[in-house]
């Protein structure tokens, strides 16, 4: 019983993390914790095969899939905590509490019959026992499951497939488009300068400086802008930095009196 009492609180806390985590990645981590703990509980309850499958399928495949999608969508996209539907949270909490209480108190008690244990069923080995059942009485279900998996694969392919409605644009098309944009919208036709050009501080997170000394935001990668990690390229900020770099002794003397 020990693993249970150790794992149960952990699992509940991790599950609650799903409810309260602001970032989707944290929620995913919480779910992973619950799943691994479940695998251990399976093992503790005489289901070594499920233990393995839980680890491989759930924690290995499904959770990876989740994380993969999260990466595609944007790892740090965190949702606003403001509830949009009036009373949704209160009602959900109330209903959830009521449901949980009923289930825990009544259903939990109602099934309190003597435990038979799996020693006899697992006598020939757990995997062999499951296999006997799976390819015995449940063979039809296995067939259907196979069909289901194939359908799911096809569905995923169809869904993820991006139908291109227009012919692929050639280099000439792109060049023409660029010139048209320049003519009509005034968009600069050439490449943006790489970050750090002419800047005192040469790094990818600092915008290039134009000849008049103003920073060019477009020169920095969009993902860096998205994370808000751009360093200002304005003159005064740079000048401050330069001053600090140019007079290390002075700063040092003032700092620790060497």
């Amino acid at each position: 019983m020990t693993p249970f009492w150790i794992l149960a609180p952990v699992m509940v806390i991790a599950a609650l993390g799903l409810l309260f985590a602001r970032k989707a990645v944290h929620a995913a981590l919480g779910l992973a914790v619950v799943m691994i703990s479940l695998a251990i509980l399976y093992a503790a309850q005489g289901a070594p095969f499920l233990f393995a499958v839980q680890i491989i399928v759930y924690t290995g495949a499904i959770m990876m899939l989740f994380l993969f999608v999260l990466m595609l969508v944007g790892v740090d996209s965190s949702e606003s905590l403001r509830e949009t539907i009036a009373g949704q949270r209160v009602a959900a909490a109330a209903v959830g509490l009521a449901f949980g209480l009923v289930m825990v108190t009544v259903v939990g008690q109602a099934v309190a019959s003597p435990v038979t244990g799996l020693d006899q069923a697992n006598a020939n080995g757990n995997v062999e026992g499951l296999a006997a059942l799976m390819f015995g009485p449940y063979i039809l279900a296995v067939q259907f499951t196979a069909a289901l998996l194939i359908t799911a694969v096809l569905g995923a392919m169809v869904m993820a497939h991006h139908e291109s409605l227009l012919p692929k644009r050639s280099q000439a098309d792109l060049a023409r488009q660029r010139m048209r944009d320049y003519a009509e919208l005034g968009v600069h036709p050439g490449n943006a300068p790489t970050p750090g050009v002419f800047a005192r501080h040469n790094a990818v997170d600092t915008p290039a400086l134009l000849p008049d000394g103003s920073p060019l935001e477009e020169s920095v990668s969009e993902s860096i802008i998205g994370r808000g990690q751009v360093r200002s390229g304005y003159d005064d900020a740079v000048d401050d930095m330069v001053k600090r770099l140019e007079t290390p002794e002075q700063t040092d003397e003032d700092g620790d009196g060497k």
């Binding site: 599950a15 799903l18 409810l19 949704q88 959900a92 959830g96 449901f99």
Partner: peptide, 19 residues
Amino acid sequence: MILFTIGAVGVLVRRNAII
């Protein structure tokens, strides 16, 4: 049951489809 309830409430209160 507790895990199930937590999951259900999560479905109700979270807005991120992935969560």
